[in-house]
Each structure stands twice: as C-alpha cells, then as structure tokens.
Computed example of a mutant assay.
Amino acid sequence: MLTYEMASVEATQALAARLGEVVQAGDVLCLSGDLGAGKTTFTQGLARGLGVEEPVSSPTFTIIKEYDDGRIPLYHMDIYRLGEAAVHEDLGYDEYFYGAGVSVIEWSEYLEDLLPEDRLLAHITIAEGGGRHLVFTATGPRATARLKELEQLCPTSH
C-alpha cells in the first residue's frame, strides 16, 4: 500500500503522470472515491504521462472513451451511471482489461465481479484544505510491480 497527500490538483496530476510513465498494456487501475474527489482529474494526469495529447474528460454518458495517441492506448471507463447494472451490460470489458492498453475505471466497485484479480486500486478522498489523499493498493504481482515503480519515482514520507 502507498499513501500520498497531494496539496493541489496539479500535484495530483503530476503523481498520476508519473504512474502513466510506468503502466503497461493489460494493467487495470480502479479508481474509487466520492463524487468530486478527483478521479477524472487523476486520469487526466495519467493520460499526460502516457503522452495522450487530446483532452481527457469524464466518459459519464459514453461509459468508455478510448485514447490511442499515447505510448499505449488508454481505456477510460466511468461506470457511475450504470451502477449495479454495469455487470449485466455487454460492453466488452474483457477486451479492454486484457487488451493492448491500460484500463482506468471510475466507480469500479460496480464491476467487482468482472475485474481481473490483479489490479491496482486507488482510493481518492478530499483532504483538509482542498488537497487530495490517495491510497494505492495492489491485488497481485503485476499491480505490486507498478506500485514499486511508482514509489521509486515518487517516494512517500509514510
């Protein structure tokens, strides 16, 4: 587990960009946190780290957006609108999870039964003063490797 205290949107995006530099095809990143906690903001930073140049916005109504102009494709999913029905939607989740890019899933808790066992979890909360508190947890060897790489790039004080 890694914990970060980020004082600003820019700092949160900078951390996410560093993660974007090390993620690999087939990595799955699950983002959780309250509405407005910064899941899309984090994804924007990750996209920057991947070299994605087009603007990244929340796919709330399209559910899944693909960005192919970076080092590897970014599959950005926002499951909030589907809620509990998400597991019953045939949106080809496996093609994304095991595809040629990195999958970033906002509100991933609604897909719990469909997610790969090996994934990186990032829980984002609003901290006092408007900053963000990020807690990363790995659930397998692949995600653990990403956390170790992130920690080398961005050591924590904890």
Rank of each mutant, 00 (worst) to 15 (best):
D34P: 09
Y4H: 13
F42A: 07
V22K: 10
A14P: 05
P141R: 14
A37Q: 02
E106Q: 06
V28S: 06
A145H: 15
V23W: 02
G131W: 04
G92L: 01
Y98R: 08
L35A: 06
A122M: 15
A11M: 13
D94F: 06
S103V: 11
G130Y: 10
K148Y: 08
T156W: 05
L121S: 10
I124S: 02
I72D: 08
S58K: 03
R119Y: 01
E95W: 14
A127E: 13
L50E: 04
R146Y: 00
I124F: 05
L134D: 10
D118R: 09
C30I: 07
S32G: 14
G129S: 09
I124W: 00
D27Y: 01
G129D: 10
L74C: 04
E66I: 00
L46D: 03
A86F: 04
D27P: 05
P59Y: 01
L120I: 09
I79D: 00
L82W: 05
A85D: 14
L74F: 05
G99K: 03
K148L: 15
A138Y: 05
I64P: 02
T139N: 04
T12W: 03
P155N: 13
A86S: 13
G129C: 07
G70F: 04
D27V: 05
G92N: 06
T139Q: 07
L150N: 09
P73V: 01
T156A: 15
E149D: 15
H123T: 13
D27E: 06
K65G: 00
T60K: 02
H123M: 08
K148S: 14
P116E: 12
G99I: 06
F136Y: 11
L134H: 10
I64N: 03
F97R: 02
T137E: 15
P116K: 12
L120S: 08
L153G: 01
Y110C: 02
T137Y: 01
T137A: 15
L2G: 03
D90W: 01
E10A: 13
G45D: 06
P155M: 11
G26Y: 09
T137D: 14
P141L: 13
E53W: 06
P59C: 07
G20I: 00
E66A: 08
M6V: 12
M77A: 12
C154E: 12
D68G: 11
F42C: 10
D118C: 06
G36K: 06
G130H: 12
L46R: 01
R18A: 14
R18M: 09
E149F: 07
G83D: 08
T144G: 12
L111R: 10
Q152G: 11
L2N: 05
T3L: 13
P55Q: 14
